[in-house]
């Protein structure tokens, strides 16, 4: 009887997760496996209807090309650079906003949602205008204080910096909110007890807040990194990967290969490489931080 009951329970459990499995299968697993399959073919505009298996030819081509190194390096700079500013900034803002004695908390909380009040697409267009070499407000300001104009989006030196800057503007509200909810989950008696014992605000930050939020911080940082790694629209809309390929990241380069050059198989191979790198990264970082434990 126990066995029957158990198996019927398992069946019901399966029923409940079925919608998620269906969605994942159709929108995630199928495209991923399709991409992996395409990456071993010669699927492109020349062989659009009659493509065939070519083994590791695409990968051999990619590893022989100098672009791979540049694109991976770009992706790492883009992801690490963005994560390194937006995650700590979110944490710092959350700490500032959660001070007991801060006046006007609700006002600030509304204000720092501002970057989110517009569609990212519009924000990026506005930034694109602001960063324009001629007539862009940023250069106007630089000129006004006696500095020369900078080639924000069209010089290989500053383009990546501009991308990270714009991405920072777009993403810090999210990290501030996530950290605010994490910080607010800490019972305030923990701080009061420390306060009575003589700990100041800096020492409570390092002795209580950070150790308590260790897992959350790891999780938020690592997922911020992964999200940025795959964050397509900022580089795509702002610089289009240029100048040259100086701001191409794996995901935009894959898109470029597939849809600008109609080299679908090569694009798929780049996507697969990106996924593999992330997979290794997640496994390694979870091993060291145990960050996934906050999910269950």
């Amino acid at each position: 009887m126990d066995n029957r009951k158990k198996s019927s329970l398992e069946f019901r459990g399966l029923l409940y997760v079925l919608p998620v499995i269906v969605v994942l299968a159709v929108l995630d697993f199928y495209p991923i496996f399709e991409s992996i399959y395409f990456s071993f073919t010669d699927f492109n505009s020349l062989h659009f209807f009659r493509y065939g298996f070519v083994g590791l030819a695409n990968y051999a081509y990619i590893f022989a090309s100098s672009d791979l190194r540049t694109v991976i390096l770009n992706t790492v700079i883009w992801s690490v650079g963005s994560t390194a500013v937006m995650v700590p900034a979110g944490f710092a803002l959350a700490m500032i906003m959660n001070q007991k004695k801060l006046r006007g908390k609700y006002f600030y909380r509304t204000v720092y949602l501002f970057p989110w009040a517009f569609p990212a697409f519009i924000t990026i267009l506005i930034w694109s205008n602001m960063l324009a070499y001629n007539g862009g407000v940023i250069n106007e300001i630089l000129n006004a204080i006696g500095l020369r104009s900078l080639d924000w989006l069209t010089s290989p030196h500053y383009a990546m910096l501009s991308l990270i800057l714009v991405n920072f503007w777009l993403s810090f509200p999210y990290y501030t909110y996530v950290y605010t909810s994490a910080v607010q989950s800490i019972p305030h008696e923990l701080y009061e007890a420390a306060e009575m014992d003589g700990y100041g605000s800096l020492s409570t930050l390092t002795k209580i807040t950070v150790p308590l939020l260790k897992r959350q911080i790891a999780f938020i940082t690592i997922f911020g990194f992964i999200f940025t790694w795959n964050n397509f629209y900022v580089p795509f809309l702002l610089t289009g990967g240029g100048p040259g390929i100086s701001t191409q990241i794996l995901i935009t380069y894959s898109y470029l290969q597939a849809f600008s050059y109609s080299n679908y198989a090569l694009g798929a191979a780049y996507a697969v490489i990106s996924i593999l790198i992330l997979l290794v990264f997640v496994i390694v970082s979870n091993h060291y931080t145990k960050m996934m434990s906050i999910l269950y």
């Binding site: 019972p187 923990l190 009575m196 150790p211 308590l212």
Partner: peptide, 17 residues
């Protein structure tokens, strides 16, 4: 401020780390 009062407090839900 609390730290200068030389007072210790036991909280209802213990406030242990």
């Amino acid at each position: 401020p609390p730290r200068l009062r030389n007072i210790a407090m036991v909280f209802q839900n213990y406030a242990l780390y």
